[in-house]
Simulated scan of single mutants.
Amino acid sequence: MAFIQPALDRIPEPYRSTVIQHRELLKFAVVGGITWFIDTGVVYALKLTVLGDKPLTARLLGVLIATIASYILNREWSFRTRGGRQRHHEAALFFAISALGMGVTLLPQAVSLYVFDIRVPHVGPVTQAVANFITGQILGVLLAMVFRFWAFRRFVFPEDKLEAELHSI
């Protein structure tokens, strides 16, 4: 992308090498930020319209739409230098790991709603909304992001064997 090199040129040298060394993680984080906004937009659009009384269903649909965008962005940008798998196999692994990631995303909010009963009528609507945001949009997304970064690098977008051998030299 044309804006990457000018941005790198502005970073002072002691930090530039660290940024370059962790470029996949940074790109993955940018993709995560973009898909977080997609997820959040879908979730709240649904909760404020047709799924007001079904926050987990809204969350599931938001995560699903964001996951599709995530595959495209990660394949074409974050992990574009990795390979070794056929696209259909790669996509199947990506969506299987993302399904596990959806479970990780949903878990903190489900615990908040159904274990701690932080839901209407036990608490007020504002308290439930704040708890849903913290447990779903922040805690759940962060936990799932750590899991997915590890799993995508390990299973979905592995380094080519030749590239891995060159790194070990």
Rank of each mutant, 00 (worst) to 15 (best):
P6K: 07
A2Y: 01
F79L: 09
W150Q: 11
L106C: 07
V141I: 11
R59W: 06
F149G: 06
P14H: 01
V42Y: 02
T67N: 07
Q86M: 02
T49E: 07
G101E: 05
E163Y: 01
L48V: 01
L60A: 15
R153E: 12
R16T: 04
P125Y: 02
A45Q: 06
V115L: 15
D53C: 01
L143H: 03
L113Y: 04
T57P: 01
V43D: 02
T40K: 00
R75P: 00
L113D: 02
T81M: 00
R82A: 12
N74M: 06
L26V: 13
M145T: 14
A92W: 09
R87M: 03
Q137C: 13
K47T: 13
F155P: 03
G62H: 04
Q109V: 12
L61M: 08
G33P: 07
K161G: 11
H89M: 07
G124P: 08
K27Q: 15
F157A: 05
S98M: 05
Y15H: 08
H167K: 12
G52F: 04
Q86V: 05
W36L: 10
I97E: 03
G103R: 05
V120Y: 11
R119N: 14
T35P: 06
T35V: 14
V120S: 13
F95P: 05
Q137G: 14
V126S: 06
L26P: 04
R23E: 10
A129W: 03
I20E: 14
G32I: 03
V50C: 11
G41N: 04
I11T: 08
P6S: 07
R59F: 12
G32C: 07
A96Y: 05
I72Q: 09
T18P: 00
A92Q: 10
D160V: 00
R87K: 01
Q21K: 15
V111A: 11
F79W: 09
F94I: 02
T40V: 13
Y15V: 11
D53F: 04
L162D: 15
V123P: 10
V126Q: 12
T57L: 15
Q86Y: 00
Q21S: 14
A2G: 12
G41W: 01
Q5F: 07
Q86L: 09
I65E: 01
D39H: 06
F95H: 13
E159K: 11
V111I: 15
G52T: 09
W77K: 03
S112W: 00
I11D: 08
F37W: 14
P158M: 10
N74G: 12
T105C: 00
R82P: 12
R87H: 13
T127I: 13
T18R: 13
G136V: 05
V31R: 04
P121S: 09
R16G: 07
I38A: 10
L60V: 15
L142Y: 02
G101R: 04
R119H: 10
A151N: 00
F79C: 08
L51P: 01
A129Q: 10
V19W: 03
A99D: 06
Q109N: 10
L93H: 12
N132T: 05
L25I: 11
S98W: 03
L100I: 15
L51K: 01
Y71H: 09
A151Y: 00
V115R: 06
L26Q: 06
L142F: 08
P121C: 10
V146G: 13
R153G: 11
I38R: 03
G33M: 07
D39W: 00
Q5D: 15
V31W: 03
R23K: 11
P121E: 07
I68W: 06
R148N: 14
I134N: 08
A110K: 09
P121K: 07
A58P: 05
